[in-house]
Design a protein around this nucleic acid. Structure first.
Lengths: 262, 262
DNA sequence: TGGGCATACTCGTATAGACGAGTGGGCAAG
DNA sequence: CTTGCCCACTCGTCTATACGAGTATGCCCA
């Protein structure tokens, strides 16, 4: 076992009140912040850290799990612990559903991804008729039965979001909206063809830690929250025509909005 | 040590591949989901769980730390582990900076909080002249020196967000904007009095786990992400007049936006 | 050359024990 | 009755050890 390259990590302060495992986490965090460990770089192994700091392995593991919770590092069984690289973020502009973007045909996700030089995929598409949950029903204006469209989006093979759209069943049944492939311009284009001129969207944004299932669906590393976005589409008569419930890997997105000042 | 009330938690499956500490976490998670432990309720103590599942204490602690990372529970030294109550969320509407809300005088935060029946406070106010960071400078349009206003907001004694506003120094120096109390309607009202008619705001929203300092400033429990919001205000000539960098406790907020459809 | 295996290194899981420190209730002394 | 202390219970920190499982590498043998 080779000694740690000197200068990478300092020593503990035995007189400090701060718990040893926190001091170790502090040292590593500082080393990452100062660039002594770069993005994607491998940290010293647990055994090396044990040696360097003269503590037991559980203490070192405790430090590392601290840093994992902060989203700073992620460990890979059999390989090591690595500084978590910041993946390229996808910027969602507030005009991304503007009609003009719809006219050309392709789905917004595909167009954007290809423009950014990524390979987009859509996955696990499922179209179903079901009873609306209380929340969805309220958002759609007391609708009982809905058509749900569930799908997952990937960029370069990495899942980044999954979403479920809910539409009033009497509106969507028998239309192309009920097909797996809703055609050029997506379901919003189909809604307008059905005479529902879209007026505006409401979006509600929250952030939280993922559930077990979300961690699996998005293959999330420890310490990565999700953004939960619920969008409701309204037609020009003020009727809600669609609710889209989206869960996104928070490290893959920045949402951009424009607000008027009056 | 009393036995656990039966029915609250099940047993382990020794034939399962799933790690014991995960199985225990699963059991507790399910019990919470199904309402067998309510919000704010105390979980069985570590000793009781050790007894119930017949495992060592470190294994139980591992399970609990798993649940903490998910934001489901939080532990309090000397008291126990509790199901994390969902605090009341503050809804930020996209018209919250509309001019009409400014005319009346009070700060937006105060008005909103009082309307919701909470006790608002503003804290650690600090006004400074400083050199703009690269990011802030870029957002303000190559401004070198800025006035920064830093403050923290609390609801019923709980810190929920802290924010720093940056304004071009040549714009703000010597005005009431440079005073700790910017007067009725806040700095946006002062900017308009200075002839800078506000046109719109850009907001960028990201979510991530908090840094050490943010955890302290917002007194965040484990497993609570932050929402990082950067707002830029533009006047009617398209000049950026303010950048506000805000970090919010994600469990205290839902952001609401309205997007036009064309 | 190519395939497969042994091996050494990585992190993952689990045990058992010890002591420290925060909290709250009950009891005893004033 | 009030005050203050002690104790029991809680989680926090740390050690030492053991074995399992995933990964990479190099060597040997076919």
């Amino acid at each position: 076992m080779a000694a740690l390259p000197s200068g990478l990590l300092g020593a503990l302060d035995p007189t400090s009140d701060r718990a040893v495992f926190r001091q170790i986490a502090d040292q590593i965090r500082e080393a990452i912040d100062k660039g002594r460990f770069k993005e994607g770089a491998k940290l010293p192994s647990e055994a090396e850290l044990v040696e360097h700091f003269g503590v037991s392995r559980m203490t070192v593991r405790n430090s590392i799990s601290q840093l994992q919770g902060e989203g700073l590092v992620s460990s890979e069984h059999g390989k090591g612990v690595f500084v978590r690289p910041r993946p390229p973020v996808r910027r969602l502009a507030s005009d991304r559903f503007a009609r003009r973007h719809r006219e050309q045909g392709k789905a917004a996700f595909t167009v954007e991804a290809e423009a950014a030089g990524s390979r987009p995929e859509v996955d696990s598409l499922e179209v179903k008729e079901e009873r609306a949950s209380q929340d969805i029903s309220a958002r759609l204006g007391s609708v009982r039965k809905v058509l749900s469209r569930r799908r997952r989006y990937l960029l370069d093979g990495r899942p980044v979001e999954f979403a479920t759209s809910y539409l009033p069943l009497d509106l969507a049944r028998g239309t192309q909206i009920a097909e797996p492939n809703p055609g050029p311009g997506g379901i919003y284009a189909r809604l307008e063809e059905l005479g529902r001129h879209l007026d505006h969207f409401d979006e509600e944004v929250q952030a939280r830690m993922p559930s077990q299932e979300e961690t699996k669906m998005l293959r999330l590393a420890a310490g990565v929250p999700v953004i939960h976005l619920v969008r409701t589409a309204y037609d020009s008569e003020g009727r809600a025509v669609e609710v889209c419930d989206t869960v996104m890997a928070a490290d893959a997105y920045v949402l951009a909005y424009q607000l008027p000042a009056n």
